[in-house]
Design a protein around this nucleic acid. Structure first.
Lengths: 340, 340
DNA sequence: ACCAAAAATTTACGCGCGTAAAATTATGGA
DNA sequence: TCCATAATTTTACGCGCGTAAATTTTTGGT
């Protein structure tokens, strides 16, 4: 049998009218069972697939979903992206993955590209502080968008993230209970999470009657490990540290600080013979494999990605009112390993 | 001024006929300079963008390029992908990124999706051993495809990768020169690189008059660190090791072995007081930040990605003959750090 | 200034499908 | 058996653009 060239021909061989076939591809459940069987029979015999471009040209809304992360070379985002992708596919959508690679203009370009893809919805983890706020805002007005990981106030229909004001005090408590109160090691904040974590640290310390000590090191790129390493070397060599316990703003920084500690000969861990405790935040996929393994707070990847797609689907299906201003924060869990 | 709805209207306000405008968007250089200026003037005043779907519907070939990597949670592939993306964009193409997430069916699905995107070309790093060979082969027959990183014999118009038969002997030589001859630590090979590296190791050892010792541990997933860790614990605890030097098939495995070494209290490095040397292969983005920093062989990311896109562009522009059977292997460089 | 060739532009048509409205047929319950 | 309702089909149109063919304009050499 020769190839099916278009829906017209496919409708012919399946004995169904073209508009009904069209309806089937739009939503297989919307046609009668007998009709569906006929179509699916023909589908097996002829392997026809509708032309994607023709399909989307006249649809008010496509089945496309955009997934945008700030930095894909971070396995954390790679994992989340995988999760999101799968769920979108399972729900019959076509996800497309974009990474801003830490660059403002790239993020803006991506949103522009995305707009022209007429997506049904977008899952956006913005760069944060270096996002072009106006551009993101305008985009979210036109396209149903769920923000995750990093919030921009007043932008997007909903936000899903983790509760820094729960997670940070938890690990601060732990560290204070088991040793010297921690200082807080951070870089220039790239997003609101960084700021919230610092604030949460300060509050937690004060609540426990300790004096907060925030150490900020230079660095504005997304090479967090490098920044942590350089900054770590700096504070370790200059004796800047007033405590033997360092709580890092995130795991990638902590990995850099660990490397710096190793370079300076510090013994990291919580044993008698150790001289330095280092903790992180996020439970990064590689945190289990550092030396020593990194004590940290886990973010609930699954919960965040599940809820994000759920919220987006609701937004797509039921409109803006159904999610209006949803803000869902998930709690972290303390992950005790050898480093602190 | 109200919004431009289509190319017709835009052609009107720019004082040029629609087909000429179409030609401009297809290739700005193909219209007279005076015409181009008129269009670009109008472009600034009205910010119109052609409808992507309508554009691609009737084009024999779109400007789309597919980029497929086997596992995006590996920062190595994330880095390469970023590089490839950028170069495609700069050349006026629209790259779309896909990750097979280590799953055969997903890779096959991606190729199917890609086919319907009518891409001008595809940059494909296949899963390798677990790829559906028939599916990949059929795809490459229909779509101009450049394979990179991992080769499948007889598939694709060209292959760009790194020269394992240069890089592995180099690090074997180094290790033999500076200490005990290494054993070779590997998992079930997921792709041809793994096999080539083992072979290269065996040859190199024999050439130097040593007895090769290949240690293969269980594991078929893409969680290399975990496999390296579990396998590492195993061999370290059972005293399976006949040498104090372990050359790992890749850096991610090595990171796992490093963690296992730490867990068992081994002192890793090449000093007098050290008991174990560990080396890897690839110069993974995180290899600099392990404790101790990982001695390894760098893959030339830039060269591989540059050459891959160059080859693809030639393939697209000049046809299959122009690249026929190109196989380009880049040499690695020894990266000496503290671990070996 | 003139003319043939090359380049640019216009004319004309159709791609493959979505979708609205109207007409027809199938369904299932009383 | 009949009827209200849902499902399907028919009819008809157009989306926004690519592109071959026809036409016009520009170019450059004499």
């Amino acid at each position: 049998m020769d190839k099916i060239r278009n829906m017209e021909e496919f409708a012919a061989v399946s004995g169904i009218s073209r508009p009904t076939v069209s309806k089937y591809f739009n939503d297989p459940g919307s046609v009668r069972a007998s009709t569906r069987r006929k179509i699916e029979d023909a589908l097996e015999r002829f392997d026809y697939r509708p032309n994607v471009f023709a399909m989307n040209q006249n649809r008010r809304l496509t089945k496309n979903i955009g997934i945008v992360v700030p930095y894909l070379a971070d396995p954390f985002f790679a994992e989340i992206a995988r999760n999101l992708e799968r769920r979108c596919i399972d729900a019959g959508f076509s996800p497309t993955l974009f990474s801003s690679h830490g660059q403002t203009e790239l993020e803006t370009d991506i949103l522009e590209t995305l707009r022209s893809l007429k997506p049904a919805g977008v899952l956006l983890a913005p760069l944060g502080r270096s996002s072009d706020r106006r551009a993101v805002e305008a985009f979210c007005r036109d396209v149903p968008t769920v923000l995750f990981d990093s919030k921009i106030d007043g932008v997007g229909e909903a936000f899903i993230g983790s509760d820094n004001f729960q997670s940070v005090p938890m690990i601060v408590d732990y560290l204070c209970r088991t040793g010297e109160p921690p200082c807080f090691f951070e870089m220039q904040p790239v997003n609101p999470n960084a700021n919230k974590r610092r604030e949460a640290y300060i509050h937690a310390m004060e609540a426990l009657g300790h004096v907060p000590d925030v150490i900020r090191v230079d660095g504005e790129t997304w090479d967090f490990e490098e920044i942590g390493y350089a900054g770590g070397l700096n504070i370790l060599k200059t004796g800047r540290l007033s405590t033997n316990t360092v709580l890092c703003s995130n795991d990638r920084l902590a990995i850099g600080v660990l490397a710096a500690a190793y370079a300076t000969g510090a013994e990291v861990g919580h044993g008698e013979d150790k001289t330095l405790r280092i903790a992180g935040h996020d439970d990064h996929p590689f945190a289990r494999f550092t030396c020593p393994p990194l004590t940290t707070v886990s973010q609930d990847y699954d919960a965040i990605s599940n809820r994000s797609v759920e919220t987006l689907f609701r937004l797509i299906g039921e409109g803006r009112e159904s999610v209006a201003g949803t803000e869902m924060l998930f709690e972290g869990k303390l992950v005790m390993r050898a480093s602190a």
